[in-house]
Amino acid sequence: MSPEFVKSDPSMWEAIHADPSIPLERSLVRMIINDQRRLSRRWLFPYARFFSRILVTAISLIKRVLPMRWMSLKTMDALCLWFLRRFVAPDAVELLIRHFVVETNLVNFIIRNTPADIEPVTLRPTTLAGLGENAVVEHDINVYDVLIALEGVQVEAPERLDFSELDVPPLDPERRHPRLLRLDIQTALCLMNIPFCIALSLEEFRRAIHSLRFDDSFLEILAVLTKDDTYRHWKMGGLSLWMDTNVDVPQLVYRHALVCEYAHAHLVKSAGGDR
C-alpha cells in the first residue's frame, strides 16, 4: 500500500503492550519491551548470536576428541555472575532471576497437584548472587526429576487444586552496582552460552538443551490438571522424543522463559489474583 493511503502510523511496541492476549502484568510487559528496545538488542545481538553459535559448535566438536571438563562449575558460576554484574542491564538481570522463581513455582504446582513421589524444589533465588552455586544446572535437573517422578502416575485433575506458593518475592538485580555496559537479556544469553558449553560435559550440555523440549510436556500437564486448554495454545510442537540438540540455544531459552511467564500468570489468575 502506498504511504499516502496509510491512515495512521502505529507503534509496534505500543501494540504489543496493549495486546489483551498477553496474560502478564502490564509492568512486566513494559520491562520486557524496554529490554527488547535496548540498543544492544538491535546492534549487538545479531553478531553475538552468530558468534555464539559458531564458537559453541566448535567447542562441542573439539570436546568429542577431548571430553574432559575444561572449566569447573564453580568457575562458570563466578564468571557468569561477574558478567551479569558489570555488563548486563539490571532489568535484564531481574528477568533472569525471576525466571528461576517462576519455573520453580510451576514445577512445585505440578508436584503438589499430582501423586508424584518427590519433595517440592527449593530453587527460588531472590538476588543475583543466588544464581551461583550451580543454580543453572539445578534448574534443569528439577525438570527431569519431576518428569521421572511422574512415571506410572495417572495425571488427572484433582478435586481441589493447590495454588499455594505462586508468589514472586522482591528481587535484587544489584541496581546499585555500576555497569560498564547494559546489555539486553538475549545478547547476554548468547554470550553466557559460551562458558556453559565450556564448563559442562557434552552429556550435561545436551541434557540442558533437551530440557527445553519439555515445555510442551509441562503445558500439557498443566492443561490436564486445571482442565484449561489455554496452556495448550502456547505449545511449540517440540516433541520430547525428538532428540536434536543442533538448535539456537539462546533463542529457545528466551522463548522458554516467556512460556513459563505466560503459564505462571495464567495460574495466578486462576488462583484468584496476584499472590
Rank of each mutant, 00 (worst) to 15 (best):
P3Y: 14
S8P: 05
S8K: 09
D9V: 10
P10N: 08
E14I: 02
A15G: 06
A18W: 06
P20G: 10
E25P: 09
R26T: 14
R26G: 05
V29C: 00
M31I: 11
I33W: 06
Q36M: 02
R38V: 00
P46G: 10
Y47N: 06
L55N: 06
T57A: 14
I59H: 07
S60H: 04
L61D: 07
L61G: 07
I62W: 02
I62A: 12
K63S: 10
R64C: 10
V65A: 11
M71K: 05
S72L: 08
K74A: 15
M76S: 08
A78S: 14
L79R: 06
W82L: 09
F83A: 00
L84G: 06
A92I: 01
L95K: 06
H99L: 01
H99K: 04
V101L: 09
N108F: 13
F109N: 08
I111E: 13
P115H: 01
V121M: 15
R124H: 13
L128N: 04
L128M: 01
G130D: 08
G130A: 04
H139M: 05
D140T: 11
I148E: 14
A149G: 03
A157S: 15
E159Q: 12
R160L: 12
R160Q: 13
E165Y: 11
E165N: 15
D167L: 07
P169E: 09
P170D: 13
D172F: 08
P173V: 02
E174F: 01
R182T: 03
L183E: 03
D184I: 03
D184V: 03
Q186C: 03
N193K: 05
P195H: 02
C197S: 11
S201M: 11
E203A: 10
H210Y: 13
S211E: 11
D215K: 05
F218M: 11
F218E: 07
L219Q: 13
E220R: 06
V224K: 10
T230W: 14
G237T: 13
L239R: 14
D244I: 08
D244H: 08
T245L: 07
Y254D: 09
R255W: 03
C260Y: 04
Y262G: 07
H264N: 05
H264S: 08
A265D: 08
A265W: 00
A265P: 04
A265I: 00
L267N: 11
A271L: 04
D274T: 15
R275Q: 15
